[in-house]
């Protein structure tokens, strides 16, 4: 069977829409785990908070920037069949908190 391959670096910054077509946010951070010899994706983190988290910026809080948690999308909720247009398999409010 032919493998479905996706360039990871091109996913970054892509806007994600949910099943209702509503804009959810951009993919700005991705967590992964090592499983034996493999490395597998667990969650996609969306929104500016994901970027700040990735860059380790905490100082902005001092100047009154509200520190929000990034939107977490488990790997099985993101449909990558068209890597240029990633979308959720559910509605944004159905995501596990």
């Amino acid at each position: 069977m032919k493998k479905t391959l996706v360039h990871f670096e091109l996913l970054l910054g892509r806007e994600v829409h949910d099943s209702a077509g509503k804009r959810v946010g951009r993919i700005l951070s991705v967590t992964a785990e090592r499983e034996g010899g493999d490395c597998v994706i667990r969650e996609y983190l969306l929104g500016p908070a994901a970027l700040l988290r990735r860059l380790g910026i905490t100082t902005l809080r001092l100047v009154g920037f509200k520190h929000r948690e990034p939107l977490r999308v488990p790997w099985d909720q993101l449909d990558l069949s068209d890597p240029k247009k990633p979308c959720l398999r559910c509605r944004a409010d159905e995501l596990p908190k």
């Binding site: 479905t4 391959l5 360039h7 990871f8 670096e9």
Partner: peptide, 24 residues
């Protein structure tokens, strides 16, 4: 310079390979 993901049905995407070089 780039990472190649393998999308697997029913299983989490795994990293297939590391891409390096100017074209990437």
């Amino acid at each position: 310079d780039g990472l190649l993901l393998e999308i697997r049905p029913g299983q989490p995407p795994r990293i297939e390979a590391i891409d390096m070089g100017f074209v990437v």
